[in-house]
């Protein structure tokens, strides 16, 4: 390519791309850069044998090896998996039932319930955590002592109840808009055709709101995974991922700090692949639908 055609090509490109567009795109790029900088920083230093990031070091896989072999971290990971999956499942079921109940309520109780739900959504996590802690000490423990032979203590049960209390309002908020879009005649028709209310619920309403339930389930998992305060206030002696990361951040040695970077890398790669698979699957689904019609 000689100089002349090159300059015309460049001026053509400049004509097509207005300075405003360039400015807008570079702004987006800048914000994205800031958002991703710490994460990429962590990914890079997860392969370095240093205590703090930014130090000089050598390339290594030791952080990953330590992450997979540290018994404390493995226990924390297992506990977190149990807690997250259990509480997300319970919250999704409870929230769905709650949303259906609220949806069919009369106007005034509905408003009260929605406001109560809203309070829990915007309530700071510290307040929820503190309130639950007081609740467990005042009401739950004496009751547990009455029923159970051995002492009832903070642990899995209290954490899971706390996480369910955290996630359920968000599930309700996710399900309600979907319920509003259902044609109410479908449910009536099912009843007219002889279905019991429970049967109609299972066969007509649940399939319609299933995508929203799935979304709520994923949201609950993220909320429960990311939670630190409710767990910290109500955990007793149970160790979870959040607590592990926090104690490493405050008092961590070189090994745990490295393991944490490896963990961040694994989470980041996991998130990207889940989103990529989801987008691809959606595209394929959309395309196959397009072909059919």
């Amino acid at each position: 390519m000689d100089t002349k055609t090159r300059t015309t090509a460049i001026s053509e490109w400049f004509k097509k791309v207005s300075p405003k567009k360039v400015l807008a795109r570079s702004y987006l790029a800048l914000v994205l850069l800031i958002l991703y900088a710490p994460i990429f920083y962590m990914v890079f230093f997860s392969f370095m044998d240093v205590r703090f990031m930014g130090m000089d070091g050598n390339f290594t896989f030791d952080n990953y090896r330590f992450m997979f072999n540290d018994p404390t971290l493995r226990r924390a990971l297992r506990n977190t998996l149990i807690i997250t999956l259990t509480s997300a499942t319970i919250a999704t079921i409870l929230g769905t039932l709650g949303a259906i109940g609220i949806f069919y309520m009369n106007r005034n109780p509905k408003r009260v319930m929605l406001f109560g739900n809203q309070i829990n959504v915007v309530n700071p996590e510290v307040v929820t955590a503190m309130g639950l802690f007081l609740f467990f000490t005042v009401a739950f423990m004496p009751l547990g002592d009455l029923i159970l032979p051995h002492n009832f203590a903070f642990g899995f049960v209290t954490i899971i109840i706390g996480h369910v209390a955290l996630c359920t309002p968000f599930v309700v908020l996710n399900i309600l808009p979907r319920l509003r879009r259902i044609n109410p005649n479908n449910y009536e028709a099912a009843l007219d055709l002889g279905a019991s209310p429970f049967h109609a619920l299972r066969r007509v309403i649940i399939p319609e709101i299933f995508p929203a339930m799935l979304g709520a389930f994923v949201l609950s998992i993220t909320l429960s995974l990311d939670d630190f305060l409710i767990t910290r206030f109500n955990s007793g002696v149970v160790e979870t991922l959040s607590l592990y990361i926090y104690s490493a951040a405050r008092f961590g040695n070189a090994e745990t700090m490295g393991a944490i970077r490896a963990l961040a890398t694994v989470m980041f790669v996991g998130a990207i692949s889940i989103i990529a698979i989801g987008t691809l699957a959606q595209n394929r689904l959309a395309r196959s639908k397009f072909k059919k019609t």
């Binding site: 993220t222 951040a249 989470m267 998130a271």
Partner: peptide, 8 residues
Amino acid sequence: PMWVHFLL
């Protein structure tokens, strides 16, 4: 970025 634990 929201999917990476906020403590991390």
